[in-house]
Structure formats: structure tokens, C-alpha cells
């Protein structure tokens, strides 16, 4: 564990908590893509199956349990509890265009052809693109609430911080995982346009609005 890894995890944790607070306090999931949230739930379920086979640390287990619970909880809030506020007219990204290619890719490019390893690889590939329905929704409506943009900023920063962690680990531990690194870079690149808008607009107190 290094400082970048810890900062990345805390940023990921903050993103999820910001999203839950937004939904809970406003009793609404307006502006949030349910499809992205379903993809994140699939990501965590397929990645953290090793909770049952492999104990790493109390920290690791606690974070995995939290991510699993919160992602499933978010899907529950969006599709059941606050269903009426879910903006499904604007949430139209076809997730099969993400699920099928990432599933195929994980069957071809993996470290080992075993069920656990393929599911882990699938979750890494899927995570890298899981935010696309959300970004698509923001571009479709042309704006995002401030709290939604804080959520996106924290979520995007997390993988960026992991990249610094991987650079650190490569230099100081001689460890690298090419699948995680490439997917993590793709994931971070997808946020670049958003980061630019966040820094130039939201941090200056303006609402995130896309140029017409």
C-alpha cells in the first residue's frame, strides 16, 4: 500500500458516498445513469468473487464488502425505491455494446484461462467503460448538477491515482499488471474531457453546462 493507492481508494469511496448522499438527501436520482450503476454493480460482483476464496487483509475485505453493498444498494434505490425520479428518457446508451465486447476481450486477453481470472479480467475491462452511459447522459442533457459532477470527478480521479500507484509499484516493487494498467489508462482518458469542464467551470462556482 502506497500513498497513491490509498488516495485512489479514498477517492473511490468518496465518489460512492457522494452519490448515495445525493440520492438519499434529495430523494431523487435525477441526472444519474441507472445503466452505468448496473454496470458498476456487475463490475464489483464479478471482481470480488475472491472474497470467498482468498483473504488478503481486513482493509481489503471491508472495502470490497462496502463497494459490493453500495453498488447493489444504488441500483436498488434507482430502480425500486426512487424509481419515479429516474430519468430513463435520457439514459439510453446501449449497454450490450459495452458488455459484449468486454466479455469477448476478457476471453481472449487474460492472464489465465480460468473462471475466476476471466471474470476478474472482464470486470477490469467493463469498469474502464462503465461510465460511458453516464457521460452520454450528461452530454445528452447538456448539463449536470454540481453534486453529480463532484461524484464524477472523484470517480475519475480514483483510476488516475491508481495509475500513479502502478508507476510507483513498477519502480519500487517491480510489480505490474498490464491488463489493469491498460484498462486503467483507457478509463482515465475517458474522463479527460469531463475533467477539463470540471476544472474550468464547476470549481469556479458555475454549473457544469456543455457548450451548445
Amino acid at each position: 500500500m502506497n500513498i497513491f493507492r490509498l488516495a485512489g481508494d479514498l477517492s473511490h469511496l468518496a465518489a460512492i458516498i457522494i452519490l448515495l448522499i445525493k440520492i438519499w438527501k434529495t430523494r431523487s436520482c435525477a441526472g444519474i445513469s441507472g445503466r452505468s450503476q448496473v454496470l458498476f454493480a456487475i463490475v464489483f460482483i464479478t471482481r470480488y468473487l475472491d472474497l470467498f476464496t482468498n483473504f488478503i487483509s481486513a482493509y481489503n475485505t471491508a472495502m470490497k464488502v462496502f463497494f459490493l453493498g453500495s453498488s447493489i444498494g444504488t441500483v436498488y434505490l434507482m430502480y425500486l425505491k426512487f424509481k419515479a425520479t429516474y430519468d430513463h428518457n435520457h439514459d439510453t446508451f446501449r449497454i450490450e455494446f459495452l458488455l459484449l465486447p468486454t466479455a469477448l476481450l476478457s476471453l481472449v486477453l487474460n492472464h489465465e484461462f480460468s473462471v475466476m481470472e476471466i471474470l476478474w479480467t472482464f470486470s477490469i475491462y467493463l469498469e474502464s467503460v462503465a461510465i460511458l452511459p453516464q457521460l452520454f447522459m450528461v452530454s445528452k442533457t447538456g448539463e449536470a448538477e454540481s453534486i453529480t459532477s463532484h461524484y464524477l470527478f472523484a470517480l475519475g480521479s480514483y483510476r488516475g491515482l491508481y495509475i500513479l500507484n502502478w508507476i510507483y509499484r513498477y519502480y519500487f516493487e517491480g510489480f505490474y499488471d498490464i491488463i489493469a494498467i491498460v484498462a486503467g489508462c483507457v478509463q482515465t482518458i475517458l474522463y479527460c474531457d469531463f475533467f477539463y469542464l470540471y476544472i474550468t467551470k464547476v470549481l469556479k462556482g458555475k454549473k457544469l453546462q456543455l457548450p451548445a
Binding site: 481508494d9 475472491d50 482468498n54 487483509s57 472495502m63 481470472e117 491508481y162 500507484n165 517491480g174
Partner: peptide, 10 residues
């Protein structure tokens, strides 16, 4: 380093 069965990252 190829397979990493002990995946400590989240």
C-alpha cells in the same frame, strides 16, 4: 509478471 491470483488491489 503474469497471473496474479493474489489480487490485493480493489
Amino acid at each position: 509478471k503474469g497471473t496474479s491470483t493474489n489480487k490485493d488491489e480493489l
